[in-house]
Design a protein around this nucleic acid. Structure first.
Lengths: 207, 207
DNA sequence: ACAAAATTGACCTATTAGGTTAATGAAATT
DNA sequence: AATTTCATTAACCTAATAGGTCAATTTTGT
């Protein structure tokens, strides 16, 4: 059904997909405009509808497409045998950055999908959402080693604070990536900076 | 110009203002719909236009109105003589929660105003924005006491992490407030929980 | 030179945009 | 009780935009 879109040369395809993800993520299904998507993708609306037959199917296609990507380039690659919270964070966020470099709106899009209540797509989404459950269940951050935390700390609170703090750093990176059109994601540099922050947290929360 | 709106009984006025703040915050000036605002406020569109003469003036009015509130109920109330970072955070965020209880979208709205590039309101906003500069300059978190931090820490990084972490907690409170229609903001309870998190940070980052 | 594929401008109908107007319903004044 | 005033709305206006189609053109491969 979407072979035409999928057979495009990768760069082109990603431009179109990213334009759609951005618009849908920003405005939700109902308020997103196919005109805006086409313009952002740099093609005519007619050509877009040559690739995607209609708005609703496009939206649903994107959802499945994104789930596949998130699974293959994120979920499946996390090494769950690593029990150190900071190592786990390092791993997951570096993977996340890599995915976001290619698809800057992918996580916002899936978030919008989760919270959408648009009548037009609600039913179709409900069927598809089941697939996600198994993955949200396997919590990335549940099974970690708490033996290294300082003994006077409330570990649950501390973990939460650490996630929030790192989430803040990730958001900053994300904003940089989005504001710079040709942001050259220097993973090594990001990795070093990230390590800097993780080290502060290690010094603070570990004995 | 907006006496009619301002002379309404407070509850009613706030309903209308909050409906508008929510819609403008969510969609920006251009994409926000006056129909949606009226519906969310629970009044007819005609009545709304009886209060506010037009969309643009309403938007600009809201901006000034919000700045006033933020100044009077937030900026001016912060005790800048308190130099302990955690006390300062406690103070500012408790004030923020109080403001957000009354106007749950006020900070999102001002954020949208800052980043809007709508031709329709750009020029008018530019004039008004100057007023804000003086306040953004006086940085709430610049002048704090760093002597109590553990000596092996990079204080700048640590401060940043603390802000991110507390920002995460604040977002959680905010989401609770918004999801619960009749959220009874129990400041005492929030204060206690907040203190819990601040204490973990104190134990971690202070010697 | 020609067939096939890629691409677009012009167009269709339905809906929504911001906003006005005349009429109604309720309160206040005489 | 009659009348003036204020609060409130339904119906309506025009312009723009929505999703989507289609015939025509441009580009590509042979």
């Amino acid at each position: 059904m979407f072979e035409k879109l999928l057979n495009l040369e990768p760069k082109r395809r990603e431009e179109i997909i990213n334009a759609a993800l951005k618009e849908f993520a920003a405005k939700g299904f109902d308020d997103a405009s196919t005109n805006v998507i086409a313009k952002e993708a740099g093609i005519s609306k007619s050509l877009m509808f040559h690739y995607v037959n209609n708005k609703k199917d496009f939206f649903l296609f994107l959802y499945e497409y994104c789930l596949e990507i998130i699974k293959k380039e994120y979920f499946y690659l996390v090494d769950l045998s690593e029990k150190d919270i900071f190592e786990r964070l390092r791993q997951t966020y570096m993977l996340k950055v890599k995915v976001l470099k290619k698809y800057p709106w992918i996580f916002d899009f899936t978030k919008v999908v989760v919270f959408t209540d648009s009548e037009a797509v609600k039913n179709e989404l409900d069927e598809r959402r089941k697939n996600l459950d198994e993955y949200s269940l396997l919590n990335f951050y549940g099974d970690i080693d708490i033996s290294k935390f300082r003994e006077n700390l409330d570990v649950e609170k501390s973990k939460q604070l650490i996630y929030w703090a790192i989430g803040g750093y990730a958001n900053q990176i994300l904003e940089e990536m989005r504001s710079d059109e040709n942001y050259k994601a220097d993973y090594e540099k990001i990795g070093i900076e990230f390590n800097g922050y993780l080290n502060e947290l290690r010094k603070s929360f570990y004995k």
